[in-house]
Structure formats: C-alpha cells, structure tokens
C-alpha cells in the first residue's frame, strides 16, 4: 500500500511540474511572438517614412530641418539592437514624427494631396499598431515575469533557468535621466 501511495504522490508532483513548465514555455513563446509583432510593425514604419518624406518634401520647403531630423531618427531606429535600445530610438522617432504631423497641419495643399493623405493614414495606422503591439508585448511579458517571480512558479522557473523578459518601455530613457533598472536580475 505504502509504495503505491509514494508512487501516486510522485506522479501527481511530476504532472504538476510538467504542467507548470509547459505553461512557462507557452508564455515564453507568446512573449517572443509579441516581440516579432513589434518588429514587423517597426519595419513597416521604417519603410513608410522615406515615402512620406519624399511626398511632402516639395510642399514643406521651410521645414527641411524637421524632415532631416525625421530621416536621421528613422535611420538611427533601423540600426537599433535589443529591446531597450530599440525602445529608446523608436521613442525619439515617434517624437519627431508627431512634430512633423503637427507641422503638416499648416499646409492646406499638402493635406488635400490624395497620396499624402493615404501615406498619413498608413503611417497613423502603423504608429497605432506599434503602440498596440508594444502594449500586447508588455502585458504578456509582465505576465511571464510575474509567473517566474511568484510562488510556486519561481521554483520551476529557477529549476529550468527561465530568463525574465525586458519590457518595452515607452518613454525615451535618455530623456528621463533615471537610472535603468536591470530587469534580468542575474544571480
């Protein structure tokens, strides 16, 4: 009788560990997928910007400075590496884009141009998609991290060496000038 009890308890524990482990793996994949979604939208954004700049260049002769800033910020964002770097450079790009959109309001001819209107809608859509992809990524990454930090998920997480995910923070890290918290918390 006793041996069966022990085997039974061990089986229950094993099943529980497997379930928890699979849950963490699922979350990890969702986080990775979430990151890919952001990446897809960022690429699209990078592809759209040169088109928009070319389309508005003729109309906005007096805003060459802003247009140059947009192109520079875009090129900086394209070469970003890693979550934190991408987050800060994309944040800067968002800033100059907002400025460009605001300036475009001053040019009625520009706003009447069908091509520009279409590009602007595409870019607005892409901006939103970047935002929502980031929102989804952060939600799922936070869930992944919480599962790894709370009991009993932390036992499984440390047993199988799961790493915490970095959140894609919205604001420009350099601008805020606050010390960066290292979320990976290496042991």
């Amino acid at each position: 009788m006793g041996i069966f009890m022990v085997i039974g308890i061990l089986a229950v524990i094993l099943v529980w560990v497997i379930a928890k482990y699979n849950g963490l793996v699922t979350l990890k994949n969702q986080v990775e997928n979430g990151w890919k979604q952001i990446d897809i939208q960022l690429k699209r954004r990078h592809d759209l910007i040169p088109n928009l700049v070319n389309a508005v260049k003729g109309y906005m002769e007096f805003e060459q400075d802003t247009l140059r800033q947009v192109v520079e910020a875009r090129n900086a964002a394209v070469s970003a590496r890693g979550v934190a770097d991408a987050a800060s450079r994309e944040g800067e790009l968002s800033g100059v884009l907002t400025k460009l959109f605001a300036l475009m309001e001053n040019y009625p001819n520009l706003k009447a141009n069908e091509n520009v209107k279409q590009l602007q809608e595409e870019l607005t859509g892409t901006e939103n998609k970047v935002g929502f992809a980031r929102q989804f990524y952060n939600d799922i990454a936070m869930k992944f991290n919480i599962t790894q930090q709370t009991f009993p998920g932390n036992i499984i997480a440390s047993m199988f060496r799961f790493q915490r995910s970095e959140l894609f923070s919205v604001s420009d890290a350099a601008e805020r000038a606050v010390p960066q918290v290292d979320l990976t918390m290496k042991k």
């Binding site: 979430g34 939208q41 279409q118 595409e122 607005t124 859509g125 929502f132 992809a133 989804f136 799922i140």
Partner: peptide, 19 residues
C-alpha cells in the same frame, strides 16, 4: 478599396492589441 482603408487599418490595430 480606399474607402475601407481606415477600417482595415483599425481592425489590424485592434487584432494586434487583442492578440
């Protein structure tokens, strides 16, 4: 169809948000 561009974009956005 350009008439539905905004609709299509908005659906894409919300699909991303909802996952």
């Amino acid at each position: 169809d350009p008439r539905f561009r905004v609709l299509n974009n908005v659906v894409d956005e919300m699909v991303i948000a909802a996952g």
